[in-house]
Amino acid sequence: MDVGHLPTYDPRSDAAKKEALDASRANLAHTLVHLNPVVVLLCGRRLWSFSNAAVPGKASSYHSVC
């Protein structure tokens, strides 16, 4: 077996650049997956806080009708 015919790794090759890009996308995806529950909880808390807001003037008219 001739050593001169063995493949070498070139970090400037297109395959190496694609591999590095795939690795960075995987890291980003991993980070965003763990960020989803935080976003869902913040949105839920915001919706809950707005739904419990008392509207002035509406409470008195509601009680006078009943």
Rank of each mutant, 00 (worst) to 15 (best):
D2Y: 12
V3A: 10
V3E: 03
G4D: 09
G4C: 05
L6F: 12
L6N: 08
P7F: 07
T8P: 01
T8E: 08
T8A: 12
Y9N: 09
D10W: 04
S13W: 02
D14I: 15
D14K: 10
D14E: 12
A15K: 04
A16D: 08
K17Y: 02
E19G: 04
E19Y: 04
A20V: 11
A20G: 05
A26Y: 09
N27R: 13
L28M: 09
T31A: 13
T31R: 10
L32P: 00
L32Q: 06
L32K: 09
V33N: 07
H34V: 09
H34I: 11
L35Y: 04
L35G: 01
P37R: 06
P37W: 12
V38A: 03
V39G: 00
V39Q: 04
V39A: 05
V39R: 07
V40W: 01
L41M: 10
L41G: 04
L41Q: 05
C43T: 09
G44S: 05
G44W: 01
R45L: 14
R46V: 14
S49R: 14
S51W: 01
A53K: 14
V55C: 07
P56S: 15
K58L: 15
A59H: 09
S60C: 06
S60Q: 11
Y62R: 07
H63C: 10
H63P: 01
V65E: 03
V65L: 06
V65I: 13
